[in-house]
Every structure is written in C-alpha cells, then in structure tokens.
C-alpha cells in the first residue's frame, strides 16, 4: 500500500470515527493542587469532610446537593454558578486518613469541558502544626476524538479543573484561617 493510500484511508476512518465519543481513549491528564493552611488537620477536615458540603467553600459552586451520605456510592450534584451540573460519585471515603475519592458520574461538557475525572481530596499534617490539603485529578478532555477543538481539548480540560480546585482551596484557606 502506498503511503498516500495509507494516509487517505486513515483520514476517512478518522472522519467516520469522529462521531463516537466514549471517554478514556485519549491520554489522561493530571491536575495536582495543594495549599498550606494554618490550622490543625482535624479542623480543616471538619470543613471539607461532608461530600455534599462543597458549596460552603467553593465560590464557583451554586449548590451541591447530596444523597447517600459520606460513604462509597454517595453522590453530589454540583450546580455551577456559570451554569451546568456535574454529578460526582464517591468511590472511597477514609475518615481515619482524612481522604475521599470520587469520580465524575455525569459530565456536562458544554458547561465544564471534561468528559471524565477521578479525583482525591486529602488533608495531611503540615508544617508547624498546620495542614496541607491535596486535591488531584486524572481527567479526560471533553472531545475524546483525535481532533478536538480548542474549547474541548486537553488544555481546556486541565484549565477548568485546575481553576475549580484553586478557587476552592483558596476560599477554604481563608475561611478556616479566619475561624
């Protein structure tokens, strides 16, 4: 097969395949954010421990209604102030380790350009009796085809999640340190 035919074939098949958009095909992307807070871990944990309490410390969130509680299988519906709703589902809740892990169960790619993420939030002992909050995610862009637009590519997904985490952690720090 000539190189030209290989390329031509490739283009046709890519166009045919573009309609299908199951997550996980592309390269997963990382977001890792953390913040030091001048308060003991148990105080910080108390502020973030309720899975449906996100609205209290993330300024980008309009509401975060939960069901099922702080156990695996529990859910929260995160309504964004900018519009759109994300449903997060808890996979693991470790009270002793001050950590929980969840995933995006229902995306809203027009409002938040991510097709899937799994994420962990953990409170760890920090310097001078303080705390460090670590919030990370493994995520896939909104358009999982091989030719995403600029608003639905890897960078757009990383930016959206990083901003969401940063705004939340900044507000959490301000609130806890003001207590």
């Amino acid at each position: 097969m000539s190189l030209f035919r290989v390329i031509a074939c490739h283009v046709v098949l890519v166009l045919l395949g573009a309609a299908s958009a199951a997550a996980h095909g592309p390269t997963p992307q990382k977001v890792e954010e953390s913040i030091a807070i001048a308060a003991p871990p148990d105080v910080v944990w108390a502020a973030v421990k309720n899975f449906d309490g996100l609205v209290a410390w993330n300024p980008l969130v309009e509401s975060s209604k939960g069901k099922g509680g702080n156990v695996a299988g529990g859910e929260r519906i995160v309504a964004l102030k900018s519009g759109g709703k994300l449903t997060d589902s808890l996979d693991e809740y470790l009270e002793d380790e001050m950590s929980y892990s969840y995933r995006l169960a229902t995306p809203d790619i027009e409002a938040f350009p991510v097709s899937f993420y799994s994420s962990t939030l953990a409170v760890r002992p920090g310097a001078d009796g303080g705390s460090e909050v670590i919030w990370d995610a493994r995520l896939y862009r909104a358009d999982t085809g091989n030719f995403p637009s600029e608003t639905q590519n890897d960078q757009a997904a990383i930016d959206a999640v990083a901003q969401f985490f940063q705004e939340g952690l900044k507000t959490l720090k301000e609130q806890v340190e003001a207590q």
Binding site: H10, L13, V14, G17, G25
Partner: peptide
C-alpha cells in the same frame, strides 16, 4: 504501523 481508529 498505521491501523486507524484508537488502538488501545
């Protein structure tokens, strides 16, 4: 090898 689609 170019195989098209999304080989995983």
């Amino acid at each position: 090898l170019n195989v098209s689609g999304k080989p995983f």
